[in-house]
C-alpha cells in the first residue's frame, strides 16, 4: 500500500499570523520598523536592528533576486522524496530581507545566482499558503 506522507506545515503564531494571512490572500507582507526603518524577517516581536517593538506590517511587491540556491538530489526526509530534485533557494526581496523558498516554473539549467524572481503562492492546506518564487 502506498502511503502519502504529509509534508511538515508551518504553525502560525500570534506574531507571524499576518504573514500567513497575507500569503493566503496572495500578498507578501513584511514587518518594517517604525523606529529605524529596517525591514524585518522572519516575523518578530522586536526589530532585529534596533530592538524597537514598533513593527508594522506592510504589503510589498514580492519581487527580488535569487541570492543563492542548491539542487538537492538526496532528500533528507521521506516527505520530500517525490520532489527530488528539490530546487532550494534563498531569495533577497527588494526590501533587503532574505527568505528560504523553492523555485518553481524554471528549468534547472536556467537557474542563476542574481536572476530576477517574483512571488507565487502555493496553497498547501486550507489554512496555509507557501511563498515560492519563479523567474520574473
Amino acid at each position: 500500500m502506498d502511503v502519502e506522507l504529509l509534508k511538515p506545515l508551518p504553525v502560525p503564531t500570534p506574531v507571524s499570523l499576518p504573514f500567513w494571512e497575507g500569503l493566503a490572500e496572495g500578498k507578501v507582507r513584511l514587518q518594517k520598523c517604525d523606529a529605524c526603518r529596517t525591514w524585518v524577517f522572519y516575523p518578530r516581536s522586536r526589530c532585529s536592528c534596533c530592538l524597537s517593538d514598533q513593527l508594522r506590517w506592510r504589503d510589498v511587491s514580492g519581487r527580488g533576486t535569487l541570492y543563492t540556491f542548491t539542487i538537492a538530489r538526496q532528500p533528507t526526509s521521506p516527505h520530500f522524496a517525490s520532489d527530488t530534485p528539490q530546487l532550494l533557494a534563498v531569495v533577497e526581496l527588494e526590501e533587503g530581507v532574505r527568505l528560504t523558498t523553492n523555485l518553481v516554473h524554471v528549468a534547472e539549467a536556467d537557474i542563476r545566482v542574481g536572476m530576477r524572481v517574483k512571488a507565487c503562492f502555493e496553497r498547501v492546506s486550507p489554512d496555509i499558503t507557501l511563498l515560492k518564487f519563479q523567474p520574473a
Binding site: P8, Y42, T76, S77, T100
Partner: peptide, 14 residues
C-alpha cells in the same frame, strides 16, 4: 508534521 518558530520558514520547503 508541524513546525513553528524559525523552522516554520525553512522546513516546509524541504
Amino acid at each position: 508534521g508541524q513546525v513553528s518558530g524559525e523552522a516554520a520558514h525553512t522546513t516546509p520547503f524541504g
